[in-house]
Design a protein around this nucleic acid. Structure first.
Length: 320
DNA sequence: CACGCGTGGCG
DNA sequence: TCGCCAAGCGT
């Protein structure tokens, strides 16, 4: 089974720049953070631009966090850009600008959890690590456990199984981790798996069991009418401002979003009390349009200081 | 530990 | 069309 999957990987692996032999540990770290919950095709152009602009942790640490957020573009979950910026600062201050190679030290960095720490230690430093991402979990669930999908949350049993399956030899273990991830991404996909092309279809417990249905239904993420929608609109306006914020852009985005959050289109002004916390804050900001000096300072403050809270706290903390 | 966090493409 | 899904993390 190991031989079949590793051989398949040798023939079918995508040619991704962060897999190149001359890619730095920093490049691997940046790719892993960008790939958290974001598809490869969307990461590729942003990663190239990011690495060209900030080729090492020190250069990113010297930049403004707002620039990191803008360069993040539309990858989503922009708090990751803030955490990567903070990680660059920590690497510069505590590790002399060199990305640490040990799992334990990587784990201390902002935005680096158990998966990313293991992935960077393995893929950038060649260490033998138990790497478990959503692809590996799904392959294990089908191949070994006969389940259509893994459990909603990562379990200790899954970690044990992954460690049991991991080859002893470090170089082979790195290939194995990458190969199983790639198999999950290209063949053993969540919705329409391409089992006829699978190199281990003969050993698959899920196929042998007759492709049973998932035993639970995943819960979707709310979007319309939520604070997330308001934050998304504000982030789009903030990104659009190249230097400082052109407040017209924020105002242009505000009324339609406030109306959406409040309800269907009416001529009257929305009642701010009926809005979500972020929606109410945005409405309050919109109402201050006349006082331009105060408004300009507020927006600059939002960009400079309040952005982290806006992204992390679930509410816009305007310094008004 | 269950939950909230952006965004866009696809079945 | 619309809900599901994508190399998770922090609280």
């Amino acid at each position: 089974m190991h031989q079949a999957i590793v051989n398949w990987f040798g023939r079918n692996a995508r040619d991704l720049p962060w897999r190149s032999a001359d890619c730095s540990p920093w490049g691997v770290l940046v790719s892993e953070v960008m790939l958290q919950q974001t598809p490869v095709v969307r990461v590729l152009p942003v990663w190239k631009d990011w690495m060209s602009r900030w080729p090492d942790p020190g250069s990113l640490a010297a930049a403004a966090s707002g620039d990191a957020v803008r360069a993040w573009g539309r990858l989503g979950y922009p708090r990751r850009a803030l955490r990567l910026h903070a990680a660059a600062a920590a690497i510069t201050a505590e590790y002399d600008g060199e990305v640490p190679g040990s799992y334990d030290r990587l784990l201390t960095l902002p935005g680096v959890g158990s998966y990313t720490a293991a992935a960077v230690a393995a893929f950038a430093f060649g260490h033998r690590e138990t790497v478990v991402d959503t692809n590996i979990r799904r392959v294990q669930a089908r191949l070994s456990s006969g389940q259509a999908l893994p459990a909603p949350a990562l379990t200790a049993a899954e970690m044990r199984l992954a460690t049991e399956l991991l080859p002893e030899e470090p170089v082979l273990s790195v290939k194995w981790n990458a190969a199983v991830m790639e198999l999950g991404a290209l063949i053993c996909t969540a919705r329409s798996p391409r089992c006829t092309e699978c190199p281990v279809r003969a050993e698959c417990s899920w196929l042998a069991a007759g492709e049973p249905e998932p035993t639970y239904t995943p819960r979707g993420q709310a979007w319309a009418g939520t604070d997330r929608q308001v934050r998304g609109a504000m982030m789009a306006a903030l990104r659009a401002a190249e230097s400082g914020l052109q407040r017209e852009l924020l105002f242009a985005a505000a009324p339609s979003i406030v109306t959406q959050v409040h309800g269907t289109g009416t001529e009257s002004e929305p009642d701010s009390d009926a809005l979500s916390p972020v929606g109410a804050q945005l409405h309050r900001l919109y109402a201050l349009k006349a006082e331009e000096d105060q408004l300009a300072r507020a927006i600059e403050g939002l960009l400079r200081d309040g952005l982290a809270q806006a992204l992390d706290g679930g509410r816009i903390a305007l310094p008004l």
